[in-house]
């Protein structure tokens, strides 16, 4: 089956306390490239293997955290159809004009009952520096990736209430599939869900949490387990605040390391993870095994993973 409708994550916008320090982190250490800085202060970044103009947007603010995540959709007709399905579901859908983000066409946006804004868009300009298209070398213009060598912005994990409703919105209105979940005891719904719109184990994930709109992490894909070690070296060399890792997840099977940007927003770089085919059944974890599900080697959950958020 081809990937249709919602294709993949497109961008994430994060608030940072100090733009200068944030750029040192995201560009020099993580390995993204700066695309542009606009008059309103937003700074646009991209990873080396992405074709679209940008995938990470930073905005200076007095409190760090999550503003919005945008998904790319196959066609204008799909965008209109999704707007109708979301509206029919009872959500308020708003329009954002073409050009509000440089190089991006019209978008629609809505607020999840977890307190997070999600947007959908169809068109984004191709990046000036994109992966080569003819007799393609591995790296664009012979330029070696730098820092942690982030390949792409891959997914986000968000914390908030009403996770079962969120799953319904993604699966019933946007045709995502539930790849994996942690079920609460006594049929009380889900503690956590991993949702996919394509063939990755997850494109967005949610954990049940009382406070709405919270941000756990933005994840960037690396090529190999060796690159996770390289990232760990960069984390120590640059006095980046380490959360946990290198380790592996039972859930999604990704090999991973977690750390914090200079404003306390959590980042993940990871490699591996299974391929999710659209006919795959949903995998389930029970609460008594959640430690192994989250951290497969330590087999116990640490407090910080559940409580340290922006």
């Amino acid at each position: 089956m081809a990937v249709t409708g919602v294709l993949r994550p497109g961008y994430i916008q994060l608030r940072v306390l100090d733009m200068g320090k944030a750029l040192t982190h995201y560009v020099d250490c993580l390995g993204l490239s700066k695309v542009s800085e606009e008059a309103d202060g937003r700074v646009y970044l991209k990873a080396w293997d992405e074709f679209d103009r940008h995938s990470v947007i930073l905005k200076e603010a007095a409190s760090p955290g999550f503003d919005v995540m945008g998904f790319k959709v196959a066609s204008d007709a799909d965008l209109d159809a999704f707007a109708k399905r979301l509206t029919d579901h009872g959500l308020t859908v708003d329009d954002v004009a073409s050009g509000e983000q440089p190089g991006v066409g019209r978008r629609i946006g809505f607020m999840l009952p977890s307190g997070h804004r999600i947007e959908l868009f169809v068109d984004m300009d191709m990046a000036a520096e994109h992966p080569p298209l003819v007799n393609p070398d591995v790296y664009p213009n012979g330029k070696m990736p730098h820092g942690m060598k982030a390949i792409r912005f891959d997914h986000a994990l968000l914390y908030g209430p009403n996770i079962d409703d969120v799953t319904k919105i993604f699966t019933e209105c946007l045709d995502f599939r539930l790849a994996e979940h942690v079920e609460l005891d006594d049929n009380a719904g889900d503690m956590a869900v991993w949702l996919t719109c394509g063939m990755k184990a997850h494109d967005i994930a949610f954990v049940l949490h009382e406070e709405p709109g919270k941000f756990h992490h933005a994840a960037f894909f690396l090529e190999s387990w060796n690159d996770i070690g390289n990232a760990a070296d960069i984390i120590s060399c640059n006095d980046i605040s380490l959360d946990i890792g290198p380790t592996r997840h039972g859930i999604t099977r990704g090999q991973t390391i977690y750390f914090f940007d200079p404003s306390g927003n959590r980042n993940e770089v990871f490699a591996g993870g299974y391929t999710y085919y659209p006919d795959n059944p949903t995998r389930k974890w029970t609460m008594d095994q959640i430690g192994k599900g989250i951290f497969y080697y330590d087999r116990k959950l640490n407090d910080a993973f559940l409580s340290v958020l922006t």
């Binding site: 760090p64 955290g65 959360d243 404003s263 959590r266 910080a304 340290v308 922006t310």
Partner: peptide
């Protein structure tokens, strides 16, 4: 408690 160590999480 130790959290993000960067002024963001508040713990």
């Amino acid at each position: 408690l130790v959290g993000c160590r960067r002024g963001g999480c508040g713990v």
